[in-house]
Amino acid sequence: MEYLIMTIKAVVVFAVVAGSMPFIVWAERKVMADAQARIGPNRVGPYGILQSFADALKLMFKEDVTPRQVDKPIYFLAPVLAMIPALTAFAVVPYGSPEVTVYGVPIFYVTDPKQVGVLWVFAVTTLSVYGVVLAGWASNNKWSLLGALRSAAQMISYEVALGLAILGVVLGSGSLSLIDIVEKQAVPRAFGIPGIWLFAQPVAFLLFFTASLAETNRTPFDLPEAESELVAGFHTEYSSFKFAMFFMAEYINVLTVSAVVATLFLGGWLGPGVGQFPLLGVVYFALKTAALIYLIMWLRATLPRFRYDQLMRFAWKVLLPLGLANVFITALWVGLRGGT
């Protein structure tokens, strides 16, 4: 029974995440158009909302070119490796209040209520670097390789900042479970400040958000792609549906990152009235995630790309010391208060 419910939840979450991807792409194009005084897609469906479906269909009918010099098994594996971690990380993200029962069976609004959700998110999102690196390596193309090299260095460097940023929240919550972390945020702090970690750990929020932009290769950290320098970076040699998979992976990553940030720092499903109507939690969670996605798009419309040396300097000389200082101060605070 337990596994049946888990399977159903997994299927639903997968469907929702994968199904919202085209709309995120569409929304991004609209936001970018807004910022650039354009209109954006408006031909396919009302307000162009079906544009992504048309694009996906078009990509499927394109010729799937496999260059002769590629390392075939790895070349075919890479897009899959890029996409799976993005979807898998979602397994531990709680998207609603856990206190719901259907016919007496408790339904957690999370696919797998692991006690080590934070570690799971980390372990899985780190894997996504393999998709990029292997794609660049297997393509046997200098631009792809340069993109892959950059992304290997970038993603591993920013992983450190990501981990340090999250430590502040983990120390403060005293738990590695994402559900516990959200529930800790339900208690208001002094002066009526909401208990969400955004207010108690603003440095951690900024660090985590910045580092996760770098992890997902979004602007201003989109060096692996860097279309103005490296053709298309690591996916230069990919066409047709394999390209579509990289493309989908990027946007699912955006969704995953937003969901994780919403969980860790914005209180996940928490919001007024969730106690009476647990289903409202899903709505709050979706709204918070959507707001973060909008923020990411807004940043893309604003910021130029980092130069490679700036990127490395920023990771090691700014984010790392800030993260260490944040962990130190949080640890001191937790220690002086005698536990969480």
Partner: peptide, 20 residues
């Protein structure tokens, strides 16, 4: 400066007329 830049894009998003 990042905030300022975001303010500029926000102004464009909210107020600037479309040229298309």
């Amino acid at each position: 400066a990042i905030l300022k830049g975001m303010g500029v894009t926000l102004r464009h998003i909210l107020r600037e007329p479309r040229v298309t």
